[in-house]
Design a protein around this nucleic acid. Structure first.
Lengths: 215, 215
DNA sequence: TACGGAATTGGTCAATCGTCCAACTGTGAC
DNA sequence: GTCACAGTTGGACGATTGACCAATTCCGTA
């Protein structure tokens, strides 16, 4: 008998639910399938969650914490800080965005089940808890805004459109990129599209006025 | 006792399934709920479809016929042929695209259940019949390509990127626009995003070389 | 050590599911 | 008219579902 705290058991059940939904879809995510994936007895389910629907809406907030866009920022940062580029002190913002989006695409290709699961749960929650979905996408826009600010600093540019508007557009384009790739599974076409997007955003950037701390 | 042909009954069941899925989601689209919506006895279901899954994948091809992008093209065409604009012989391509995308947004706002149903069914089919999903999105790209050609003719411009690439991007951005609006329900933000998209595509257009038949 | 409450468990329940089928009805060919 | 067959129907079946509960086990505290 494994003895776990309430939060531990809850978290393990949520992780198991994400795995099941990603692998077999929302319809296959029965209470029995989830507890089997978590290696727990059936009774453990309703000890933690009042109902199956309670778990489903909780999954949204659970995956929000492990943010997908955070990984995108990191992926872009890793490449953009390549020491071999020391001779190009200020890479173009289009290049930076391309690298960042490529990083997200690699993440998507390597683990499509995760986004597939999120799509299933979001579609379900749009009817049963729209507020949770809106909350989720709100964090996407916040992360997109942070990414654009980060890219602007790297490229030493200033955005010529309101940052919130650009962030909305970026989050929306990321949704489209995800859905397009999931349906077509065409990585080459996705990369071509990424170059188009990078150019679209770079069109709204102007060189930053020199500041005292510029090197 | 209503006596219908095989195709009539099949079509009515598919329509009823789309209504049920759009209203209550895929999980609620049981065989009983569908035949109730279609006002048929339960036995009629398996007289037409071998299984519930057969109907679900058939729904994809059924909605593909009533193309969403076709309506978008029409909506744009209606506004762009406004006789009051006779003094502006060649409207900018950005303006044309904005009008077309606005038309699609109005369509989306007026009947979100339809796209919601499509999202549900597509997510389900990604696991059970990926080929059907790819087919569906392929028609989206074809329609997007036709729209871009149509807009180019209206604005008398030529696209400077391969048309297939631009069509892929447009279809992807439309997916994003749809998903973003469904999750946030913010029409103002969507319209701002549409202006961003129109500018992004217009950036890859150059004035067309004059042809003999130009007026 | 004894005890109270939290945690754990397997079994059970009614409801609902997809599927199937035998009986019935109408229609067109001869 | 009648015969063959396609179309139609409501009920029934076994399987699976979400939910619930009484019995049991374990741990912290007095």
């Amino acid at each position: 008998m494994r003895r776990l705290s309430f939060e531990e058991r809850r978290s393990e059940l949520l992780d198991a639910a994400v795995r099941v939904i990603g692998r077999d879809g929302l319809a296959a995510a029965t209470t029995r399938a989830i507890v089997a994936e978590a290696d727990m007895p059936l009774g453990a389910f309703h000890y933690v969650f009042a109902s199956r629907d309670d778990l489903l809406v909780a999954v949204i907030d659970h995956v929000t914490e492990q943010e997908r866009l955070a990984a995108w920022i990191d992926a872009g940062a890793d490449e953009n800080t390549d020491p071999a580029d020391a001779d190009a002190p200020t890479p173009g913002v289009a290049e930076i965005l391309t690298r960042g989006l490529d990083g997200y695409l690699r993440l998507l290709v390597s683990a499509p089940e995760r986004e597939l699961a999120l799509l299933d749960v979001a579609a379900h929650a749009m009817r049963h808890d729209p507020a949770a979905v809106e909350r989720q996408w709100q964090t996407y826009r916040i992360a997109a805004r942070a990414s654009l600010e980060y890219a602007a600093d790297l490229a030493r540019i200033t955005w010529t459109l309101p940052l919130d508007d650009l962030a909305w557009s970026l989050a929306s384009c990321l949704d489209g990129l995800t859905l397009s790739w999931l349906t077509a599974r065409d990585a080459d076409a996705a990369r071509t599209h990424i170059r188009f997007l990078a150019a679209a955003f770079a069109a709204h950037a102007i060189p930053r006025k020199e500041t005292p701390d510029a090197d």
